[in-house]
Simulated assay, not measured.
Amino acid sequence: MPVAVTVSGRERALLRAVAAGRCQFRGGCEPVLLVDGLACADWSVARRLVECGLVEIPDPRVPLAPAALTPAGRARLTSA
């Protein structure tokens, strides 16, 4: 049975930015989420969205790749 994920207002805003195509991941051992070309100041929110399965896991070998919602992330955004 899937576990319900509670999403804060800040996390919801970041999900909306990913859905709008405004976010990218800069690759590396610790990927960095960029919003409108700038590093996301709240790295813990970005990490939590990936760990909760709401944002696709970035490939650390790719220098710069678009961030994408998972099906669960899209569903969570539309139900919020």
Rank of each mutant, 00 (worst) to 15 (best):
M1S: 13
A39S: 14
V55S: 04
P31S: 12
E51V: 05
L38G: 11
C52A: 14
C40E: 13
I57L: 09
Q24W: 15
V50E: 01
A68W: 10
R12M: 12
P71R: 14
L34I: 08
L14Q: 04
A41F: 00
G73S: 08
V50K: 00
T70I: 14
V45S: 03
R74V: 14
A68E: 13
L77A: 07
R22F: 08
C40R: 00
S44W: 01
P71V: 12
V7W: 00
V18R: 05
P63L: 06
G37V: 06
T78Q: 11
A20T: 03
L38T: 11
R26F: 06
A19P: 03
A67V: 04
E51A: 15
R61E: 14
A68I: 02
L34M: 10
R26M: 09
D36W: 04
C52Y: 05
C23P: 03
P63K: 10
T6E: 10
L15G: 01
P60S: 15
S79L: 08
A80P: 02
V62F: 13
E30V: 15
T6K: 13
V45Y: 01
L15K: 07
V3K: 03
C52P: 01
V32H: 09
P60H: 12
G37W: 06
G27C: 05
L15E: 01
L49P: 01
P2Y: 11
G73F: 00
A67H: 03
T6Q: 15
S44M: 03
T78L: 13
C40W: 09
T78G: 07
L64P: 13
P60A: 15
P31E: 06
T6A: 10
S8E: 04
E11M: 08
P66R: 13
V7P: 03
W43P: 03
R76A: 13
C29F: 07
A75P: 01
A65C: 06
A72I: 09
D42V: 02
E11F: 00
A19Q: 11
V18C: 12
R12W: 01
R16N: 04
L49V: 04
L15R: 00
V50H: 00
P66M: 07
G73D: 07
P71N: 12
P2I: 02
E11P: 03
A39G: 09
R61T: 13
E30C: 05
P63F: 05
A65K: 00
V7R: 02
V32M: 10
L64E: 14
P58R: 09
R61N: 05
A75S: 15
D42P: 02
A46F: 00
L34F: 08
A80W: 09
R48V: 02
E51L: 04
A17S: 10
A68Y: 07
